[in-house]
Each structure stands twice: as structure tokens, then as C-alpha cells.
């Protein structure tokens, strides 16, 4: 799997040749720096670690400074590992090399985007787990339209099962949306336009996977 780290800019829409309006998201992707290369001998698996976004020197722990110094680069804010990074056999990726969006993606490619969804706070089961609610407002129902209903049987099992879907903190999870199409690629500006929406708020970090 190859990929790149990016930042969500925002959404807009464009028209395709048939006149169909396509909602799309603009993502600033890269340029990333290869901060570590893992191989089978020392780590047990192969992967490429990429760093993205400048981080202030004074906010970087010494241990991380040393890590970035090994790759001869400045401290990075977001570091992500890509297992089995697809690369040319003749031209393998080296430590400290810059990876741009044009290296990884081409126009009309399909990609997956990983991000952290927007936090929604404490929510009921209708919003959190897509429960149907009660469904009837009349026929004796009173102020429990969005209630979860029964959460289990009686004297057996005398307890509520673990993992039962109930109300609670919603959002802020790692979410992956799959098969978004690359509508436009602007490698000179480090921008990529993908179809549809991606998780998270504007300016939040995203992982684009191929």
C-alpha cells in the first residue's frame, strides 16, 4: 500500500463532461519526507514512514529530534507509516527523500482516505447507532420518541451484555472512506481534488491510501 499524508482544505463541486455536478473535496497532500525505512531484517516487516507538516523545534522532544536528524530533515508534525509501500524496483525510495502527490497518484485513480471524524459530543442512540426510534408519536407514546427500548432480558441474564449499543460520546473516531476518485491532480501546488466527502474538520490531517 502506498500513500501520502495531507490536510483537508474544504469542499466544492465541479461538473463533469455530461453536465453532472460532482461534490468534491480539496486536499493539500504532501510534500512528505521519508523519515524511516523499515525492513524485514531489523523490524520484521517492510514499511515506509512519511512525515508531513512543519513542527516547531522547541515543541519537539529530543528523542524525536534525533529521529528526524537521522533522515536529515526538519521536525514534522504528522508521522505515518505505510506498510509495503509500492515503489519502483529500479528506483527505490531512500531515506530523507521527498514524496509528492504526483509520485503516488495519477488522475482517475481510486483512493481511500482516513481521517478523524468530527466530535459530536454525548449523543443518543438514534444519531450514534442509527436506531429507528419509536416510530409512532401517538397511540399512547409519551416523550420517548428517540429512546433505545429494551436493553436486555430479566432475571436471566440479570445483567446488561458488554458492548451493547447505547448513548455516549460520538464522533472523533478514525474513519476510512473507500474508493474516492481523483478528479484533478495539481502536483505543482501539492493539491488533489477527490470525489465525495472525507472525514474530519477543515485543516485536519488525512491519510490518502492507494
Amino acid at each position: 500500500m502506498s500513500g501520502i499524508i495531507g490536510k483537508k482544505i474544504g469542499m466544492t463541486s465541479i461538473y463533469d463532461d455530461n453536465g453532472q455536478s460532482i461534490p468534491c473535496t480539496l486536499i493539500e497532500a504532501g510534500p512528505c519526507v521519508v523519515t524511516q525505512l523499515k525492513d524485514v531484517e531489523t523490524d520484521g516487516y517492510t514499511s515506509v514512514q512519511l512525515g508531513y507538516g512543519e513542527r516547531k523545534d522547541k515543541n519537539t522532544p529530543k528523542a524525536l529530534k534525533g529521529h528526524f536528524a537521522k533522515a536529515k530533515t526538519t521536525p514534522k508534525k504528522k508521522v505515518v507509516e505505510f506498510r509495503d509501500f509500492r515503489q519502483d524496483v529500479d528506483n527505490p525510495i531512500s531515506l530523507g527523500q521527498e514524496v509528492t502527490v504526483g509520485d503516488v497518484f495519477a488522475a482517475d485513480d481510486f483512493l481511500d482516505v482516513v481521517g478523524t471524524s468530527k466530535g459530536k459530543g454525548f449523543q443518543g442512540v438514534v444519531k450514534r447507532h442509527n436506531f429507528g426510534g419509536v416510530g409512532q408519536a401517538t397511540h399512547g407514546q409519551h416523550n420517548r420518541l428517540r429512546a433505545p427500548g429494551s436493553i436486555g432480558a430479566c432475571s436471566f441474564p440479570s445483567r446488561v451484555f458488554k458492548g451493547l449499543k447505547m448513548a455516549g460520546r460520538t464522533g472523533g473516531d478514525r474513519v476510512k472512506v473507500i474508493n474516492l476518485k481523483v478528479l484533478r491532480l495539481m502536483p505543482e501546488k501539492n493539491l488533489i481534488l477527490v470525489s465525495g466527502s472525507v472525514p474530519g474538520a477543515k485543516n485536519s490531517y488525512l491519510i490518502l491510501e492507494k
Binding site: G10, T12, L26, L191, L193, K202
Partner: peptide, 10 residues
């Protein structure tokens, strides 16, 4: 709106 999107919508 972001400047980058405005550029795109030019």
C-alpha cells in the same frame, strides 16, 4: 472560504 478553493473556483 479557503483561498485555495477560491482559486479553484476562478
Amino acid at each position: 472560504m479557503s483561498k485555495l478553493i477560491e482559486e479553484l473556483e476562478q
